[in-house]
């Protein structure tokens, strides 16, 4: 397992999982791939299938319908796989916490490895979040 995690930190392929978001975090994720931020130079790439992914970027506050699909998609991912909560909605449900169509927070459904707060988080914040996640994983391996 430790070797796998070490390999994961080299070039992270991410899968974007939108669970009833407002689209803003999703756009900022796509923004990361475009010329100004261009995270592909770090080997971070958006992939089409969750089975290829090393990390899942979850946005949005997860309604009743999206929740079941989200559970299944996360279960389909090859393990070990990091789950990163992007934006206030997936971190804490934000202002949708009281809605009749929301059930629970993301961390009740799956283990979350990194929280990136903001509404939406700036692309720089997302890069920093992923860097912090890699550093934390490497530090844990050294122990």
């Amino acid at each position: 397992m430790s070797l796998k995690i070490k390999a994961l930190t080299k070039s992270i392929w991410v899968f974007h999982l939108a669970a009833s978001p407002c689209n803003n975090c999703d756009i900022e994720i796509l923004d990361l791939l475009t010329p100004r931020y261009d995270v592909e130079r770090f080997g971070i790439q958006l992939v089409g299938s969750v089975r290829h992914a090393d990390a899942i970027l979850v946005t949005g506050s997860m309604n009743r319908k999206a929740r079941q699909r989200l559970k299944r998609v996360i279960a389909q991912a090859a393990k070990p796989c990091f789950v990163i909560a992007i934006g206030n909605c997936s971190c804490s449900m934000e202002m949708f916490a009281n809605s009749y169509n929301q059930m629970e927070c993301l961390d009740n459904v799956s283990e979350v490895h990194a929280y990136i707060a903001g509404c939406p988080p700036k692309p720089e914040a997302m890069i920093q979040g992923v860097v912090a996640l890699i550093q934390a994983q490497l530090a844990a391996l050294k122990k």
């Binding site: 669970a19 978001p21 309604n63 999206a66 949708f96 009281n98 809605s99 929301q102």
Partner: peptide, 11 residues
């Protein structure tokens, strides 16, 4: 559709 419904009118 329906994966995005958050009940905003009610909120």
């Amino acid at each position: 559709i329906g994966y995005n419904h958050r009940g905003i009118e009610k909120l």
